[in-house]
Structure formats: C-alpha cells, structure tokens
Design a protein around this nucleic acid. Structure first.
Length: 342
DNA sequence: CTCGTTACGGTTGAC
DNA sequence: CTGTCAACCGTAACG
C-alpha cells in the first residue's frame, strides 16, 4: 500500500517520545502495531521518519557520460577489451568501484550502442550531462548516498562557515536527498519565523503530503541551509559520521532508506543504520516534525493532547526507557534559532 | 497483553 | 501509451 502520511508517521514518533507505548499509539492513531513498530525502529536506527523510496528503477551505472568514455576508449583503441575499459573507467575516475559497469555491461554497450562507432550519441557535441540526474531516482523519497564518493558537502563537515550552498549544488552528484538541509531546516525555520505552527491537527491531511518536500524546497532560500548545517556542526552532533555528514546532519528528515555504499544495485540492505544513538537528544521536543506544512506542525495543543492520552494508570509503571530529557536541548534549539534565524 | 517479525497483497515509478 | 519489474508499503497473523 501507500506509505502512511508523514503527519501520522511524525505523530507516531512524537507520541513515542512522550513515553506513550507503541500499543497505545497503535490504537490511538489506528495504525497497526507492526507499522508503529517498524516506523519507530527505523526512526531509532536512522533518525528518519520518512518512508523509503517506492517504485522506479535502480539508477543506472551506464550513464551517458560513462558510455561516452567507453566510446572514446574504443575509438582510441579498437582492440581494447571490456575489462580494460573497465579498468580505465576506474583509473580515469569516470566511475568508482561502486558504480563501475560490469564487464558484461560494457560488452553490451560496445555491442549495442557503440557497435557502429560513427553514430554520434545523443550527448555528443560537447555538452556534458550530469553524471546523475538532478532527481535521479525518486523525487519524492530521495535517497542519501552514503558512500565513499559522498558529496562535496561531506567535505565541509567541520566547516560551519563553508558555503553551504554546496549542499544544494552537490545534490545531483551525491545522489541525493531532496530532504536536504535546506528544505528541512528551512521549513522549520520558516515555520518558526512566521508562526505558521498552527497545525490542522487531526483534520484531513493534504492528499499528497509526500510532495511537501519538493514544494517546500522551492519556497525557502538556501541561506537557511547554512544555519541548518551550522547548527549541526556547532553542536558537534553529526549523527551520520559515515554517510555524507553534510547532508545528513539533519538526521530525522532523511529518508529512511539508504543505499548501502557498497553497491547501488545489490544488497538493498534497507536502512543504513546504526549511526544514530538512541534518544536523539538533539531533537527538539520530539519534532522531527515541525518542518512539515500544515497538518503536521507540532504545537502546544498537540503536545497537550498527546500527554492527555497518556494513561494515568500506566505512568511510571515500568520505566519507559525513553525518558523525556529533551528539555535542555529544546531550549538550546530555540536559542539557536532565535539567534540565527532572523 | 505487548511487541518483533514476516507473508501477503497493494501501490508506485523508471524503464 | 502500456506493460513489466522491482522496490517499498501497511496489515494481519504468528510466536
């Protein structure tokens, strides 16, 4: 079926952070407990509330650029072997070991596309298409690409002042996340700045909630992203040391699913997990959510509601490991925004 | 009763 | 434009 609306996903995490038990969340939100379990588990593991990418095809390794190089190699040395081409693609940095085409793929390319060497390809003529489409796989549920070839943004991990716009620019190359720092924190900032926090709580959700990210991205200036990264960097709270820190410092908004660095096509291992410590203390009052548009915003009423839902009889029964220690962080967070987001 | 896991059928989107 | 394929989804059932 279709993924649960982000608002609901968000709420699940919210309620869980308030100490409400999964079974209660399941009942209140009328979502199967299996689903609640899955979403919470994923959130704890990856920091993301977002569903994985649905549909579409795997990104191809034989991009036009790669084909072009293969053609060049073949033209330069008609007797070249496919495995030699493969080695050259690696040596020339056209591909890395994670996305280099297989020998058989190269053979197929030679046979099918370059069989008649004279034919100019669609990309001939000087213009160099980007290695990856801007929105390569799924514009709704983007994948981060936590790999060795991480985005340029990764390099600025420790440089808060660095031109964060790079995070944006790098998107195409890094096989990227639409839920970039920009749209994520940007939204949040926007929400806070404009007081747009009033949610449509409980009422009908926008039909296409998944589209928010893209909508939002266009709505906010990149400058916001700087603050976003700044914050993450300043607090030394990079949650994803491994995968592209630049992009992933906003853990909670990353899509849940990440392709393993080892192989884009193979082992779809699911969430590349483990790099987020439980608790996510850096997350303000349990709002992986606040960045969302109407319908998801967390506001006082929501919290009150959530709290009210807590069954008195149950409270303190057995220590629910997730103690709500968010207060301090929350303050820091607010201070941060009040200071930097004006 | 709670909750992690998984089979199943459905939806999605690139090709 | 339609069909195929492979990905993820949430539910239901099991343990």
């Amino acid at each position: 079926g279709r993924p649960l609306p982000n608002a609901i996903r968000l709420r699940i995490v919210e309620l869980a952070q308030l100490g409400i038990r999964p079974c209660d969340i399941s009942r209140q939100l009328r979502v199967s407990h299996g689903c609640v379990s899955k979403i919470l588990a994923r959130y704890n593991e990856t920091g993301s509330i977002l569903p994985g990418a649905i549909g579409g095809s795997k990104p191809r390794v034989t991009t036009p650029n790669v084909v072009k190089h293969i053609r060049d190699y073949k033209q330069g040395d008609p007797g070249i072997f496919a495995w030699e081409i493969r080695d050259r693609l690696l040596a020339d940095g056209v591909c890395d070991k994670y996305n280099v085409p297989s020998v058989s793929s190269i053979s197929r390319i030679l046979r099918n596309k370059i069989g008649s060497l004279s034919q100019p390809g669609p990309y001939d003529g000087g213009k160099q298409p980007p290695p990856q489409p801007a929105l390569p796989y799924n514009h709704i549920y983007q994948y981060p690409y936590p790999g060795p070839m991480a985005s340029p943004a990764a390099k600025m991990g420790g440089h808060p002042g660095a031109p964060v716009a790079a995070a944006h620019v790098s998107l195409p190359r890094s096989w990227p996340s639409a839920h970039s720092v920009t749209n994520i924190l940007g939204i949040r900032t926007f929400v806070e700045q404009t007081g747009a926090l009033a949610g449509t709580e409980g009422s009908a959700y926008p039909p296409k909630m998944e589209d928010w990210p893209s909508v939002n991205r266009t709505a906010f200036p990149p400058a916001q992203a700087v603050n976003g990264i700044d914050k993450a960097a300043m607090e030394g709270d990079i949650k994803y040391p491994q995968p592209a820190p630049g992009l992933s410092s906003v853990g909670s908004f990353l899509p849940a699913c990440a392709y393993p660095p080892s192989n884009q096509h193979g082992v779809y291992g699911g969430p590349a997990g483990g790099y987020i410590p439980p608790g996510h203390p850096w997350q303000p009052q349990g709002s992986p959510l606040a960045h969302h548009g109407p319908g998801v915003a967390v506001h006082g009423g929501d919290l009150a509601t959530a709290m009210a839902f807590k069954q008195p009889g149950r409270e303190g029964e057995k220590e629910r490991k997730r103690t709500n220690e968010g207060g301090k962080v929350t303050c820091a967070y607010l201070v941060y925004f009040s200071r930097y987001c004006k």
